[in-house]
Simulated assay, not measured.
Amino acid sequence: MNEQLQQTLNALQGGVTSLDASTAASNVSSWHQTLNGVPGAETLVSHLGRLQEALTSGDLQGAAALLPGLSSETERLASSAPAADQDGLRQLAAALRG
């Protein structure tokens, strides 16, 4: 599993509500940069951008409302990801569903 994915899963071990908004925003920003331009990830990148905006503006309810869509897109993309990352992406999708 790639290091960025492992770090995200480690950060979410206590659930999405265990992260403070600035840590979450930093993580989301990093994923947005990583996935921007990846074929097939356009919808996920869009979700990440909206989540980033919600987190940085302090709209935690808005951020929470975006998590189900983010989870669904992560789950959808897991099957086309490198084999070493598929289980981690499914774990991430489950963590986002909370």
Rank of each mutant, 00 (worst) to 15 (best):
A78M: 08
H47A: 03
A24N: 03
T43F: 03
S30L: 06
Q33N: 15
L19Y: 05
T56M: 13
V16L: 08
L77W: 04
G15N: 04
Q6H: 01
T34A: 15
G58A: 06
L67K: 06
R97V: 01
A81L: 10
A95E: 08
S30E: 08
V16A: 05
L48W: 05
G15S: 05
L51N: 01
H32R: 15
L55R: 01
L35C: 08
L55K: 02
A81F: 12
L35W: 13
D59E: 10
G62S: 10
Q6D: 04
L12V: 08
A64T: 07
V45D: 02
G69D: 12
A93I: 12
N10F: 08
G37S: 09
Q7E: 12
R90A: 04
A95K: 13
Q13F: 01
A84I: 14
L5P: 05
A25I: 07
Q91I: 11
L35T: 08
R90P: 00
T43N: 12
S18E: 03
S30H: 02
G88H: 03
V16Y: 06
T23Y: 06
H47C: 04
W31G: 01
L55C: 02
A95F: 02
L35K: 07
Q86W: 03
H32M: 09
A63S: 07
S22H: 11
L77Y: 02
R90T: 10
G14E: 10
A41P: 07
T34R: 13
L70G: 07
G62P: 07
M1C: 04
G40P: 05
N2Y: 00
A95T: 02
L19M: 13
E73K: 00
G62N: 11
E3G: 00
H32E: 14
S29I: 00
A81Y: 11
A81C: 12
N36G: 13
T74S: 03
D59I: 04
Q33H: 15
S57K: 15
G37R: 10
D85A: 09
G37Y: 09
L66N: 00
D85V: 10
G69F: 08
A65W: 01
L67T: 06
R97I: 00
N10S: 12
S30D: 07
P39T: 02
L35F: 15
P82R: 11
R76W: 04
